[in-house]
């Protein structure tokens, strides 16, 4: 058997990023656990609003609607966004279970539907309120059909007693259909996506105070739960970003001076 390393420009870059992230991540995690050195996080206003939506739901007795995006766990480009949204859902359901708010969740594929159901059930069980968990409040709407899913979200906003809507995850331009329906019904909303197709529409529909942009949706779980591992992950992302900025600056200098003319291959492929 002839085994060899498949190291081309793109794999070398991926390997460096992977190893660097693991080093930064475990370094930051051990600093938080051993020395209690928690990173200072800048305020994210949409997440403050999200917490207030949970409180409003508990006060009014109306449900809080949560959508983990119109992507899915079996949809490769959007799987990470959906995973991050499910971690955020975990923190939101914990808040809902503790405050007595009711939560309604919908999903656009079976894997995220089952994962969402497990996440919400686990948080209600953790808060000692398993009796209040209704499995029918987590709904499978469609199987990876973005438009039909958004039509289902619109219909739920229209028909159910909803006090607030949270749409975090992979959305494209179809988000606007649900976002504008929420506006017409005067339902306060928090939205977020890392897709450039959805971000301007979210800013226009939900407003800058209620929109999580790009990487902010990946940081949301750390902000809401404050768990050391999640905070360490945000710290590692920042350290890696600084490393990449440095690599880009050095790369531009190396390519411009002719020192390493093919350095761009390591970044572009």
């Amino acid at each position: 058997m002839n085994v060899s390393l498949a190291l081309g420009p793109s794999t070398v870059f991926a390997l460096i990023v992977l190893i660097a992230f693991l080093i930064f991540f475990f370094g930051a995690w051990s600093r938080i656990e051993q020395q209690g050195h928690r990173p200072v996080l800048r305020a994210l206003r949409p997440l403050v609003r999200l917490k207030s939506l949970i409180g409003q739901s508990a006060e009014t007795g109306k449900g809080l609607y949560y959508s983990p995006g119109s992507g899915g766990l079996n949809d490769q480009p959007g799987a990470a966004e959906t995973l991050s949204s499910l971690t955020t859902l975990s923190a939101v359901s914990r808040g809902a279970a503790r405050s007595g708010a009711s939560l309604q969740v919908s999903a656009n594929d079976t894997l995220s539907y089952l994962a969402a159901q497990d996440v919400v059930q686990a948080e209600y069980a953790g808060a000692g309120r398993l009796d209040d968990f209704d499995p029918h409040n987590v709904r499978f709407v469609t199987q990876q059909d973005r438009l039909a899913y958004i039509a289902g979200v619109e219909s739920s906003l229209d028909e159910e007693a909803i006090s607030g809507s949270v749409m975090l995850g992979r959305f494209d331009s179809e988000y606007l259909l649900a976002g504008e329906r929420a506006n017409q019904l005067d339902i306060p909303q928090v939205a977020g996506s890392s897709r450039v197709e959805a971000m301007p529409l979210m800013l226009a529909s939900a407003g800058p105070e209620s929109t999580l942009l790009g990487e902010e949706i990946y940081a949301a779980p750390a902000y809401l739960s404050r768990r050391p591992a999640l905070l360490a992950s945000v710290g590692a992302q920042d350290a890696l970003r600084m490393l990449i900025i440095l690599a880009i600056i050095l790369g531009v200098i190396a390519a411009s001076t002719g020192l390493l003319p093919n350095i761009g291959d390591y970044f572009l492929r």
């Binding site: 992230f21 991540f25 990946y218």
Partner: peptide, 29 residues
């Protein structure tokens, strides 16, 4: 857009690795 993509890619890497390392295991508690 490139700035957003770099940040998003880092977020995706972080989220995926957290799940793969079993740090984010809220789906089975």
């Amino acid at each position: 857009i490139r700035g957003i993509l770099i940040g998003t890619a880092l977020g995706a890497i972080a989220t995926s690795l957290r799940y793969l390392l079993g740090v984010d295991n809220n789906y089975m508690r």
